[in-house]
């Protein structure tokens, strides 16, 4: 039995005003997918996301979502105004968009899962970047979504926090069966985790979706970033190098 489709973009054009910067995009999201959307800054990733979330209409083509599909969304932290005096619990459980008792239970369970229960009464704006990110994740998970979409969730995070977030998402995907769409401008973030990768660059009119294995080659990545990029596979790990790597004098491997 094939995996059911949850979201489909058919011949979609995206852009602003009447100007399309990417046309004829086709993308299908399946249950249990881990899709990484990768591209340089200003590549059109967020616009594509808004179209997938159905909060921006495509300039052409159609967007289909499975009936009663629930999408949990994690926005970029920088989009949220720190002027709001909301507590962590108020952010995780906004109190609208479902039954009150269900929202409350979902919020408490998501906070526990992400280890932020002790922050419930702390003002959201006083949290560190990593804590804020976990709060936004908890809000998205509180509605018990079928698909979780994250817009550059690791921006401004240190390396360990970045890794722990990706591991958490990978666990939700593999063990919880949650479909994950992860937007990043660094390809290294999704190489080991995503089952498929969508590369996007509006400046060069590029949009390609392939399995991570097929897409991770020097030529394709260098084309999308317009910069020499080298993929090196060693000990089961994938390393992404910006520029041409120099071989190690002792091992002969790329550094």
């Amino acid at each position: 039995m094939s995996t059911p489709s949850q979201l489909k973009l058919h011949d979609v054009s995206i852009g602003y005003g009447n100007t399309a910067f990417l046309a004829s995009l086709n993308l299908e999201l399946y249950q249990g997918d881990f899709l990484g959307i990768v591209g340089p800054n200003g590549a059109g990733k967020s616009t594509l996301l808004r179209v997938m979330l159905r909060i921006q209409k495509p300039l052409a083509g159609s967007v289909w979502t499975a009936p009663s599909l629930k999408i949990g969304y994690v926005p970029q932290r920088s989009e949220l105004d720190p002027i709001f005096p909301l507590s962590t619990l108020e952010v995780v459980n906004p109190g609208v968009g479902g039954k009150k008792s269900k929202l409350k239970t979902g919020a408490l369970s998501a906070m526990e899962k992400l280890g932020i229960t002790h922050l419930a009464s702390v003002p959201f704006r006083e949290l560190s970047g990593g804590q804020q990110q976990r709060v936004l994740m908890a809000r998205a998970l509180a509605i018990e979504p079928d698909v979780l979409i994250l817009d550059e969730p690791t921006a401004g995070m240190d390396l360990p926090s970045e890794r722990s977030l990706v591991d958490f998402l990978s666990d939700l995907n593999k063990n919880g069966g949650l479909t994950v769409v992860f937007v990043a401008h660094q390809i290294a973030l999704v190489t080991g985790t995503a089952s498929r990768i969508a590369l996007i660059n509006k400046e060069r009119g590029i949009f390609m979706v392939e399995s991570a294995r097929d897409l991770l080659c020097d030529e394709k990545l260098s084309e999308i970033y317009n910069f020499p990029i080298t993929i090196d596979r060693c000990d089961g790990q994938i390393c992404v190098h910006a520029g041409t790597p120099q071989p190690d004098s002792k091992t002969g491997r790329a550094r």
Partner: peptide, 24 residues
């Protein structure tokens, strides 16, 4: 109260989560 706060704080997520932001 909660609906006004949610749409004021993060209208994009509210829309994505199916809240009728325009009406609120």
């Amino acid at each position: 109260f909660r609906a006004f706060l949610f749409t004021s704080f993060d209208g994009t997520t509210a829309k994505a989560h199916g809240v009728p932001v325009r009406i609120i």
